[in-house]
């Protein structure tokens, strides 16, 4: 009887262990480093995976986990590998992630200008300091497959909804929402769609099967797509900046010197 009941419960799709999640779920919960570990385990069971895509995920997930050096090394590794070809929007995202890695490590105006050339903050007023926060949000557009006819697949993309608005709080002031400065969702979605609509090779017997599993491209789902920038003049001295992330509110102490600008990168 016990076995029968257990089998019935297993059949209700609750077979995965309690407390374990897919890499995508872990990323959505704000656990990027665990997402990378889970992804590594998945990749280990799939010898046919594209190593270039794997390194891209590694770079983005380590970046989201605040391991800027590890992320930068993974991006360097990506450039040295052959395989997955980046779309234009993906190349832009990659360049920006590398620039924000540098910004998080060096925290200077030059690194900020490299990441956001058209958005250079002015220096603070005399005797004051400045805080600049860079928020990363969003994710790869969702690719949907539609069947207009029995044999022909049509692809559309839908923007992935933002998991949480970029919100921050300085010391004991009221929390504020930051508007999106730059979003690559639409551009990436369009490029994914046009790529997916490339005519199918009629001699490829597995093409319909691949369509049924969600398209012909692998998606760099671990990358952010939206950036917000908050800029604020503050009195010199220690401050507490509290940022809202999907995993909860995170306060951190920041020391701002007079005349200095402090840059903070806040991954999703």
């Amino acid at each position: 009887m016990k076995r029968l009941l257990a089998a019935a419960l297993l059949a209700t799709a609750c077979a995965h262990p309690i407390g374990s999640f897919s890499p995508l779920e872990l990323k959505a919960q704000g656990r990027p480093r665990e997402a990378w570990v889970a992804l590594q385990n998945q990749l280990a069971e799939d010898p046919g995976h594209d190593p270039r895509v794997a390194v891209l995920h590694k770079a983005a997930l380590l970046h989201a986990g605040g391991d800027w050096v590890g992320s930068e090394l993974a991006f360097a590794q990506f450039e040295a590998l052959r395989g997955y070809e980046l779309l234009g929007a993906e190349r832009t995202i990659l360049m920006r992630l590398r620039a924000t890695n540098t910004l998080a490590l060096r925290r200077d105006a030059q690194a900020f200008a490299a990441a956001f050339p058209e958005r250079s903050p002015l220096p603070p007023a005399p005797g004051r300091g400045k805080l600049v926060l860079v928020f990363e949000r969003g994710g790869a557009p969702v690719v949907r497959v539609h069947y207009d006819q029995a044999t022909k697949a049509r692809y559309t993309t839908v923007d992935r909804p933002l998991s949480a608005a970029a919100r921050w709080q300085l010391d004991d002031e009221a929390a504020a929402t930051v508007q999106i400065y730059d979003s690559l969702q639409a551009a990436w979605g369009g490029q994914l769609q046009s790529q997916a609509d490339v005519p199918r090779n009629p001699l490829d017997p597995f093409a319909p099967l691949r369509d049924a599993f969600g398209g012909r491209r692998q998606i760099w789902w671990s990358a952010p797509t939206d950036w917000s920038i908050a800029e604020r003049e503050v009195n010199p001295g220690p401050h507490v900046v509290t940022v809202a992330t999907v995993a909860g509110r995170r306060p951190q102490r920041v020391d701002v010197a007079a005349g200095a600008t402090v840059y903070l990168v806040v991954p999703q």
Binding site: K2, L5, L9, C14, A15, P17, I18, G19
Partner: peptide, 18 residues
């Protein structure tokens, strides 16, 4: 017991953490 009640058990690698 976990298997009996829900059909799966706690991820063994995280049991100590829980």
């Amino acid at each position: 017991n976990e298997h009996f009640v829900t059909g799966s058990s706690v991820d063994a690698s995280q049991r100590e953490f829980f």
